[in-house]
Nucleic acid binder design. Sequence first.
DNA 1: AATTACCACAACCGCAAAATT
DNA 2: AAATTTTGCGGTTGTGGTAAT
Length: 270
Amino acid sequence: MASHCKSKSKNQNQSSSESFGVIEDDKISEIRRGPWSVEEDSLLIHYISVHGEGRWNLLAIRSGLRRTGKSCRLRWLNYLKPEVKRGNLSPQEQLLILDLHSRWGNRWSKIAQQLPGRTDNEIKNYWRTRVQKQAKVLNIKTNSPEFKDIISRFWIPRLFNQINECSSSSPPPPCPTPQLSDSDSLPAAGDGNRRHFDKEQNSTSSESMGISQVSDPFSDVPSWNHGGGETAAENFEYPIGDSGLQLTDGIDDDDSFGGCLWNFDGLWQF
DNA sequence: AATTACCACAACCGCAAAATT
DNA sequence: AAATTTTGCGGTTGTGGTAAT
């Protein structure tokens, strides 16, 4: 399981360098930080298999792990938990992220709830490394109307094409559809759940791009579905039909964003 | 072959809400 | 009801891998 961590091979079993957390032998009881070792993973998995999740601080103490409860919780939820999917995000999942982010902003955990097996951390990383990177290249803000327009004009159709190519070659198995309840609409402004939420939402978009004159800005965007739908796409199907996306089902569009910012209708015309 | 720059992602941090005492 | 502890969230950072030079 831990071997999935592509970048941890050097650190995973290190005992001599221990550049994180444990400093010296006589301070062996200090809190460890940094990458988790295989032994730590095993310890955590075993403890949870016996005692279950929760009471993370207690878990941290009783399990023998020299980690904080927070660290244990994060390791379990983002990596060790059996339901956690690994691998690249499928086009369907990317579409869903793009759409849900347009509705909910940086509410990663909320978005993650709609992508079974995906964690808020993973989605957040996707947004930062992929989406925000493109915005940076284009020198516009991700929350600007210009960028959203570019997404809907270029990026989303591209994902649709990928989905179509995959489904034409091998039809996807039946999968759950994201269930969005009435309570999924954004809470009223000032709701405590939206703590840092508005940081990125004040779109100024002082930079104006001539959208109509823009050539495909994502021509250099790689296909991130390296697995060809062999990972998440197998278990998750974005609701697609002749009528286009159906994500609005059950969603109260009367949220603080004024509803979905991207008009998915007519995407097939592209 | 060595060095540098960039990328992706795991993990940490601070803060606030929720739960418990 | 107040204080304390636990949990959860979003932002940020650190690190290893890899492509480019």
